[in-house]
């Protein structure tokens, strides 16, 4: 992400404010997408880390400022807002990880070398531990007392999976031609829509999964 690096190097006040604002708006978008998407999206680790640094810096600045300065409370408020955004974003991801642990870890295992992981390394550790503790609990209390042929947990039956066919509201950020919404079936023909920039739709989530990932559409 080029503007992040740029932001790190810049020292002049004006550019810093501008790029930090861009990071923030990206993070806001990531947060909204994450909130409305039924499955876990790619982790935006860079954004989170950058924003956290930013907060820490701001807090240091406040420490140095005079007491009772009006600007301080404005900055504090801004910090609070950003911190809420960050926590809410990460919390939302954590909830999904906890709910769909098995599914997400399966996906992670099937992931090809060139694809990006959806989990940040920390989230991966957490997911692993969470799954282990759940299974351990079930084994301890119930499974090991069951007849031998029933002692295993079959992920096909027990894994909670996100419903990709749920409907989402979306706004189109880039023109995209020919999105296949409905596969051809015996009764109906296939349905294809062209998405134009600025359009808003209610759609099944499944057809737009790659578009959300690439940022061509945003969820609202």
């Amino acid at each position: 992400m080029s503007e992040l690096e740029e932001f790190g190097d810049e020292s002049s006040e004006e550019v810093e404010v501008l790029t930090a604002a861009e990071v923030l708006s990206k993070l806001e978008q990531a947060w909204a997408d994450e909130k409305f998407a039924p499955d876990l999206l790619e982790a935006k680790t860079d954004l989170v880390e950058c924003m956290l640094e930013q907060i820490n810096e701001m807090e240091e600045n406040i420490q140095r400022a005079k007491r009772g300065d009006f600007k301080v409370s404005l900055h504090r408020m801004e910090i609070d807002r950003i911190r809420y955004l960050l926590s809410s974003y990460l919390r939302c991801r954590l909830m999904k990880i906890e709910k769909h642990t098995t599914h997400i870890l399966e996906q992670e295992q099937m992931r090809k070398e060139e694809e990006n992981s959806r989990l940040s390394p920390e989230e991966y550790t957490f997911a692993k531990e969470y799954q282990a503790s759940m299974e351990g609990h079930f084994k301890n209390i119930a499974l090991r007392h069951m007849p031998p042929n029933l002692q295993s947990l079959d992920p096909k039956q027990t894994a909670v999976r996100p419903n990709l066919d749920s409907y989402v509201f979306l706004r189109v950020a880039e023109d995209t031609q020919g999105v296949l919404v409905e596969e051809e079936t015996v009764d109906t023909g296939e349905e294809i829509v062209d998405l134009e920039k600025g359009d808003q739709h209610i759609m099944r989530y499944r057809p737009v999964v790659p578009l959300v990932a690439s940022g061509a559409v945003t969820l609202i």
Partner: peptide, 28 residues
């Protein structure tokens, strides 16, 4: 324990307490 470990590891320094800031802030 695992939640604490996770929250401490966010963003490198110090981490972030996710159990704070549960509601959007209105006033300071």
């Amino acid at each position: 324990k695992m939640l604490a470990t996770y929250m401490r590891s966010i963003g490198g320094v110090g981490g972030l307490d996710l159990t704070q800031d549960m509601k959007p802030p209105k006033t300071l």
